[in-house]
């Protein structure tokens, strides 16, 4: 039976449940794919919320010694930049866009990726690499920066994430 809106019981005053833990999955290897996750993880720690980062597929580049400093803004297939595809495809374009963004971020006190991972790690945030991706790319622990806490299978990731909000980026 339908009820008229005004006949509904007034909403109960419920106590707001605060977020205590977040697990953030980083699957993209572009600058704009990685930063939001780092900002959210650090922001969680700043609020006293537990935070884990789980890097998978090309997101793993953020943890790779040989690639971390080479991460760039995607200038092709990124409509948010409002740049024609053919212009975005000109060699060096993504380097230029990355430099510009890096300067802007530095002025806002947002650290480069390496320093940001260090900040999150020192804040007590967990930094993990995805086991399947590590195997797929033929990597070993030596390929990663020292802030990496371990290589996890999906099962181990879910186990660690018990009680957490899982965020996929």
């Amino acid at each position: 039976m339908t009820q008229l809106y005004h006949e509904l019981e007034p909403a109960q005053e419920v106590e707001r449940e605060l977020i205590e833990k977040v697990s953030i999955v980083v699957s993209k290897g572009s600058l704009d794919g990685i930063y939001p996750a780092l900002i959210m993880a650090n922001g969680a720690r700043m609020e006293g919320i537990e935070a884990d980062l789980f890097f998978t597929f090309f997101g793993l580049d953020a943890l790779r010694k040989d690639r971390q400093a080479k991460i760039k803004v995607a200038t092709v297939g990124n409509p948010g930049l409002h740049m024609p595809t053919l212009v975005g495809a000109i060699p060096g374009m993504s380097w230029v866009a990355t430099k510009m963004m890096a300067r802007q971020m530095e002025s806002l006190d947002i650290p480069p990726i390496g320093e940001f991972l260090e900040l999150i790690h020192d804040s007590g945030g967990g930094i993990y690499a995805c086991h399947a991706t590590v195997e797929m790319f033929g990597l070993t622990e030596d390929d990663f920066v020292p802030q990496v806490d371990g290589i996890l299978t999906v099962g181990e990731f879910y186990d660690r994430s018990a009680g957490a909000q899982i965020i996929f980026t």
């Binding site: 650090n42 900040l119 020192d122 804040s123």
Partner: peptide, 17 residues
Amino acid sequence: SIRSLGKESGVPIKELY
């Protein structure tokens, strides 16, 4: 920011937390 707090306050990030 937490970044400059860690760099300039004389107390490193780990200890801040």
